[in-house]
Simulated scan of single mutants.
Amino acid sequence: MSEIILENLLSPVVLFFILGIIAAIFKSDLKFPDGLSEGLSIYLLIAIGIKGGIELSHYSIESVVAPILGALFLGIIIPFITIFILKVIKLDLKNSIGLAATYGSVSIVTYGAAISFLEKNGTAYEGFMNALVVLMESPAILVSILLLKVIENKKIMPVMSSQNIGFVPNSVNLIDKEVIKESLFGKSILLLLGSLMIGLVLGERAVPMVKPLFMDLYNSVLILFLLNMGLIAGQRISEVKKHGFKLLLFGLITPLLFGFIGIAVGNVVGLSLGGTTLMGVLAGSASYIAAPAALKTSVPDANPSIYLGLSLGVTFPFNLIIGIPVYYEIAKLIQ
């Protein structure tokens, strides 16, 4: 495994990410213009979405039902596990919800780096995995905010009997429209879902037009984006230190826990080695685009330096350097 980790560490995408961290630590004047940073983000979202749509057009609905259910299961269960862990750590409710939404959602760029890793190792994966990225973006955000509303307003009553243990809502208006709008129609999900549908409808007819920009140049653009992410991550590391060693451990250990759960689910639903690895990567990653955007409006009291600091300053580099090859090796052992 050490050879795979070293090989991944010496890949261009990781080295440019590390270069960005070094530049931030030593306070270099290197800086990406806001417009370029936004443009690179939009490019990656469209590229992943449209490639996923084209690949998805090759599969029947029956062949993707089980993986889709597995992805939705992960998006729902991970926030509950996160909140339980943070309750043990004794983190306050608002910040626990912020981390539950962040770690339950996914990192598009981590997924993109994992694809590059698999392609470099010659490992095939199901094309519809790109579609699962879209499906795993929103559920965790909605579930986390629903939990916050439920706990804060005490709008549920426990129901316990010999046949049923659960909760009965007293009100169906637990989440306001702005939260739903941000979770389903925010930039990342809109672009991913929209480009996915375009690729699905057009299929192979879209390839001649999209291949030169969105396929051939993908890895090169990813390098630029990760250089910028390295700059941002380097600036966030100090913020994580302010909140204690326990949170630092959370940002390092939970990706492995969630990644293992994702790999187990991928194996159960019948994915290949590459697909199972990607399911683990998605489960073990943390969002720093969709979730923070939703949290900013729906949970304003949650501290961004905690959920963004951990996701971008700790978990993202951990997954990029160590996590991806570890998930790959675990997937090989399980399969």
Rank of each mutant, 00 (worst) to 15 (best):
L295Q: 04
D301R: 12
A286M: 11
S285N: 13
G323I: 00
T297L: 03
P300W: 01
I334Y: 15
M279H: 14
I334A: 11
P325D: 01
E329M: 10
T297D: 01
A286Q: 13
V314M: 12
P325M: 03
G323H: 13
L282T: 06
A283D: 11
I321N: 09
P292Q: 12
Y288C: 02
A291L: 04
A331V: 08
A283Q: 14
S311R: 13
K296D: 03
D301N: 11
A283R: 15
A302T: 09
I322S: 07
G313F: 09
L278K: 14
S285E: 10
G323M: 06
V314H: 15
I322N: 12
V281W: 12
S298A: 00
G309M: 05
P325L: 03
Y327W: 04
G323F: 11
T277Q: 08
I289C: 10
D301S: 10
S305I: 03
S305Y: 10
I321H: 12
Y327L: 03
F318N: 10
Y288W: 08
Y288N: 02
Y327H: 04
K332G: 04
L278T: 02
I324E: 04
L310V: 07
A290Q: 12
I322E: 07
G284V: 03
I289Y: 15
L308R: 14
V326Y: 03
Y288E: 03
L278E: 05
A286P: 15
A293E: 07
P300H: 01
A302F: 08
Y307F: 10
S311T: 01
S298F: 01
A291D: 04
E329H: 14
F316H: 14
A286K: 15
T277Y: 10
G284S: 02
T276G: 00
I289A: 12
P325G: 00
K332W: 06
I289Q: 15
L282A: 01
A294R: 11
P317Y: 11
T315K: 15
L320M: 13
L295T: 09
P304V: 04
I322Y: 12
T315F: 04
F316S: 05
M279D: 06
F318T: 08
I289S: 13
V326S: 03
L333V: 11
E329P: 15
S285A: 07
V326K: 13
A291T: 09
G280E: 06
E329S: 09
P304F: 01
Y327V: 01
G280S: 00
Y307A: 00
I324C: 07
V314N: 15
P325V: 02
L278W: 11
V299F: 05
T297W: 07
V326M: 08
D301L: 04
Y288A: 02
L320F: 10
Y307Q: 08
G323D: 04
P325W: 04
K332H: 12
A291F: 05
Y328V: 01
P300M: 04
A293F: 08
V299I: 05
I321A: 06
L308W: 08
L320G: 12
A293S: 13
A302K: 15
L310M: 09
L295R: 10
I321L: 08
V299P: 08
L333S: 08
A290E: 09
A283N: 15
P325K: 10
S298G: 00
P292N: 12
L308M: 10
G323C: 02
T276E: 02
S287D: 03
F316W: 12
P317R: 14
Y307V: 00
Y328F: 00
N303M: 00
T315D: 05
L333D: 07
A283Y: 15
L320V: 06
G323V: 01
A294F: 02
V326P: 15
